[in-house]
């Protein structure tokens, strides 16, 4: 078993990261922890380095200083139990593969029979089973993002990273996708890390919202969201508790922009 001191699936410990030639580091002494099964949202002003942070959290990139621990271990490559949904589905779904082949992409090591079954189940979970034989570019944006979601859950991850996954779709589709993601994450008991610039989305979906400062990004504050699941797009968003938390997060982010 993996050594775990504190039950955290992801520990970001005082990490910094600069790009060559840039005068200001993009991440500077950033720290937060994610417990197993927790849904964490990271918000911050646009351009503050959220995507860099996510790439570090995925072990696709190493911080210059500090460490990122995945279930207690420092990794040089993404572990098999981690998956990502990227913002730009048009650049992450392989256009030469059908929906079915895209979803089964990470299951090359699995026998064909089991692969087909798991792909079919994942497509059913995102309600895309009717489009299995089509190509991603034949689908609407929301359907493509559901395909990307199916591809990331078919490998049965423990940690799901979402990089602004709803930023490129229209409002109604965004709400549907938010509901779908929350449902799937709860069903699969996933730990989920959502990076977003949408503060309302962060409060609505997460157990904990981590607010980042402008460049260089640091953690300004963590806001616990103690609203019970399942959450409803209308009912939850009308509760005083939701409005209070949204106000709190919004104020924190706005202070950052003013600085």
């Amino acid at each position: 078993m993996i050594a775990e001191t504190d039950g955290a699936i992801l520990t970001v410990d005082n990490i910094s990261r600069s790009y060559p030639g840039a005068p200001v580091p993009i991440l500077d002494g950033l720290t937060f922890r994610q417990k197993r099964g927790e849904f964490v949202a990271i918000v911050g002003p646009s351009g503050c380095g959220k995507t860099t942070l996510l790439r570090c959290c995925a072990a696709l990139m190493q911080p210059d200083a500090g460490s990122v621990l995945h279930a207690g271990q420092i990794l040089s490559d993404p572990p098999p139990w981690l998956s990502i949904v990227f913002q730009d589905y048009n650049r992450s779904l392989f256009p030469w593969l059908s929906v079915k082949q895209n979803v089964g992409f990470g299951l090359a090591h699995v026998g064909k029979h089991e692969r087909d079954e798991r792909v079919a189940a994942a497509l059913r979970a995102v309600r895309l089973d009717h489009a299995a034989e089509l190509y991603p570019w034949q689908l609407s944006g929301g359907m493509q993002q559901r395909c990307a979601l199916a591809r990331s859950i078919v490998v049965r991850p423990k940690l799901l990273l979402l990089d602004e996954p709803f930023a490129s779709v229209d409002a109604q589709t965004r709400f549907d996708l938010q509901d779908l993601v929350m449902e799937i994450c709860r069903d699969m008991s996933l730990s989920t890390l959502l990076v977003t610039h949408d503060m309302e989305e962060a409060v609505f979906m997460a157990d904990k919202v981590v607010v980042l400062s402008t460049k260089p990004a640091r953690v300004v504050d963590e806001v616990a969201i103690n609203i019970p699941y399942p959450r409803d797009q209308l009912a939850t968003k009308e509760t005083p508790e939701f409005l209070r938390l949204r106000h709190q997060v919004y104020t924190l982010v706005r202070q950052q922009i003013r600085h």
């Binding site: 790439r55 993404p78 998956s83 990502i84 990227f86 992450s92 090359a108 490998v155």
Partner: peptide, 29 residues
């Protein structure tokens, strides 16, 4: 090749050779 294609391949556990064979070859076609 789109960097996100390569990230997707790495997250799905593909090594360098598999990335060329399953992603770069097609994207560069």
């Amino acid at each position: 090749v789109e960097p996100t294609f390569l990230d997707t391949a790495r997250v799905n556990g593909l090594g360098a050779i598999a990335r060329i064979r399953r992603v770069v070859l097609f994207a560069a076609m």
